[in-house]
Structure formats: structure tokens, C-alpha cells
């Protein structure tokens, strides 16, 4: 009797597990229905007298954004996605190099460099990116030679350049800290042991410390690049037409808010999922072989 009950329970759980592709959607459907009827129909419509009249219309994407050039909103979105990816990659490369230099400054024994890097990192990390973007875009003119600024203002994609500057300076501060933490997380004994074997400092660094540090540093660097991709949306404040800006053009022009934002959400989601997929693959293939 007792055994029967236990076996039944086990069998039920096996069944649920085997057919989970049916059960999980059913479950979400149930939640959706619950929200629709209880929260919306009863609470909002009947009690609070709020009723939504919103008809979805995804065909809006195929209408023309600029009549003269026959560009549709799809074209605008494609432009936005490309700009987002482009600005992220360029900024990432610049930020990586800047960040590495800063990390070396932080770890060096030269006091001046250490203090400079530390104050740079702290100041950048504790200020909003938006303020930094405004500062570089609106405020740097008086610090630069006049010839240079007039030339700069004549360029067509100057906003893009300022966006790259702001994003890479902001991200470099975070990357520098990740690299420093990665190098410092290697136990002191590693260095001592390799020095005791007769390696020079640089040899020990190159052969023992850095190979370990790189494996530790790469996952946080990937998550930083994910952050960078998300934060690149802020450059729309100075007029760079990236993904977020395209979607604002769409719902600003047509008032189709749900359509515009849902598509944008899905695009960002797939961009992020691609990056996290890369991170997971990395963890699977590299970290599993380097346990010691």
C-alpha cells in the first residue's frame, strides 16, 4: 500500500517531466488566463472601470518612414541594429585597450600612475553615463583647439564618434577593475612558487599568472560587453540612430507603442542571449579543463 503510493508519485513526476513541453505552456496559459479574467476583466473593467481598446497592428512596420526615399520602418530598425552592434564593438575594442593600460597602472609600483588610474576609475564609475555623454558632447569644445572643433563639427557622424568616446571611457573603468581583480585573485603562492623555481618576474607573469588570470577574467569581461551593449542605447540622447532611437521614431511617429517596444525587446533579448550563450560555451569548454 505504502509502496504503491510512492511508486505512483514517482511515476507521475516522470510523466510530467517527459511531457514538460506540454505542461509548461499549459501552465503559462493558465497564468495568462487568470490575469486576463481575474485581474483585467473583473478588477480593472468592472471594479475600476478601466477598459483597454488597443488593437495590435504590426503592419505599421512596412509603412514608409520617409515618403520621398521610400524607406520603411523595417529599414530604420535594420539601421538601428547595425548601429548598435557597430558602436558596441568599436567601443569594446577601445575600452579593452584603455582598460588594460589602466589595470597595468593600478598594479604597477609607480605611485603616480596608481593614483592617477585609481582616481580615474573611481570618478568614472561613480558618475552616470548620461552625464558623461553630455559632458563629452556638449562640454569639451573649450578644451580643444578651435581648428579641430570646427573640423569635427563638419563631419557627418560626429555624434557616433562622441558616443564611442563616452562609452569606451565609461566601460574602460569597469574593465580595468575586472582585469586587476582577476590578476590579484591568483594566490600569492603561485608567484612565489614560480620565482622559487627560477623564473624571472616577467616570465612568471607570462607563463604562470596571466594564463590563469585570463581564464578568470574572460567571463566578467563578456558580461561587461553585455552591459556595454545595453548602455549603448543611451547615445540616442545625442542623436545617434541606434535601436532604441529607431523604436522611438516609430512610436513617436505612429503612436504604436506596443508594436515598437515589443519588437525592440525581442531584438535586445536575442542580442543578450547570443552573448550569454557565448559565455556559457566558454564556461563549459574552458573552465572545465582548468580546475586544479
Amino acid at each position: 500500500m505504502i509502496k504503491k503510493a510512492r511508486e505512483l508519485k514517482v511515476e507521475a513526476s516522470i510523466l510530467i517531466n517527459r511531457y514538460r513541453f506540454i505542461f509548461y505552456p499549459l501552465y503559462f496559459l493558465a497564468i495568462a488566463l487568470f490575469i486576463y479574467f481575474v485581474v483585467y476583466k473583473i478588477l480593472l473593467v468592472n471594479v475600476l472601470n478601466i477598459e483597454f481598446n488597443y488593437k495590435l497592428n504590426y503592419a505599421i512596420f512596412f509603412t514608409n518612414y520617409i515618403e520621398a526615399t521610400r524607406q520603411s520602418y523595417v529599414d530604420l530598425y535594420v539601421l538601428g541594429v547595425i548601429t548598435t552592434i557597430k558602436i558596441s564593438i568599436i567601443s569594446l575594442v577601445v575600452a579593452m585597450s584603455l582598460g588594460t593600460v589602466l589595470a597595468i597602472f593600478r598594479l604597477s609600483n609607480v605611485k603616480v600612475l596608481d593614483i592617477f588610474a585609481k582616481s580615474y576609475i573611481e570618478f568614472i564609475r561613480n558618475t552616470p553615463l548620461l552625464i558623461q555623454i553630455f559632458f563629452w558632447y556638449f562640454g569639451t569644445d573649450p578644451l580643444l583647439p578651435k581648428v579641430f572643433t570646427t573640423w569635427l563639427k563638419a563631419q557627418s557622424n560626429v555624434e557616433f564618434a562622441y558616443g564611442v568616446i563616452a562609452l569606451s571611457i565609461y566601460t574602460s573603468a569597469f574593465i580595468a577593475e575586472e582585469i586587476r581583480a582577476g590578476i590579484q585573485s591568483i594566490p600569492k603562492e603561485q608567484m612565489e612558487a614560480s620565482r622559487a623555481q627560477g623564473f624571472s618576474f616577467l616570465q612568471a607573469m607570462r607563463l604562470v599568472i596571466l594564463p590563469q588570470a585570463i581564464r578568470i577574467v574572460i567571463p566578467p569581461l563578456i558580461s561587461q560587453s553585455l552591459n556595454l551593449t545595453k548602455y549603448s542605447s543611451l547615445v540616442m540622447s545625442i542623436g545617434v540612430v541606434e535601436l532604441m532611437a529607431s523604436s522611438r521614431f516609430l512610436f513617436g511617429g505612429t503612436a504604436r507603442i506596443f508594436e515598437a517596444l515589443s519588437v525592440t525587446t525581442i531584438i535586445y533579448l536575442s542580442l543578450s542571449l547570443a552573448i550569454s550563450f557565448a559565455l556559457n560555451q566558454y564556461n563549459k569548454y574552458f573552465l572545465s579543463y582548468t580546475r586544479y
Partner: peptide, 24 residues
């Protein structure tokens, strides 16, 4: 979902979508 989208997108969702639905 929330961790993979930018904050501005979340802000836009909250600030523009519900007000477009009803007067209240």
C-alpha cells in the same frame, strides 16, 4: 528578460505604454 534589456526600454514600457491605454 529584465536583465537582458536596457533600462531605457523598461522605462519606455512603463512610461509610454500604460498611459496610452486609458484616461485614468
Amino acid at each position: 528578460l529584465v536583465r537582458s534589456v536596457p533600462l531605457i526600454l523598461v522605462i519606455f514600457w512603463f512610461c509610454f505604454f500604460p498611459p496610452g491605454l486609458s484616461e485614468t
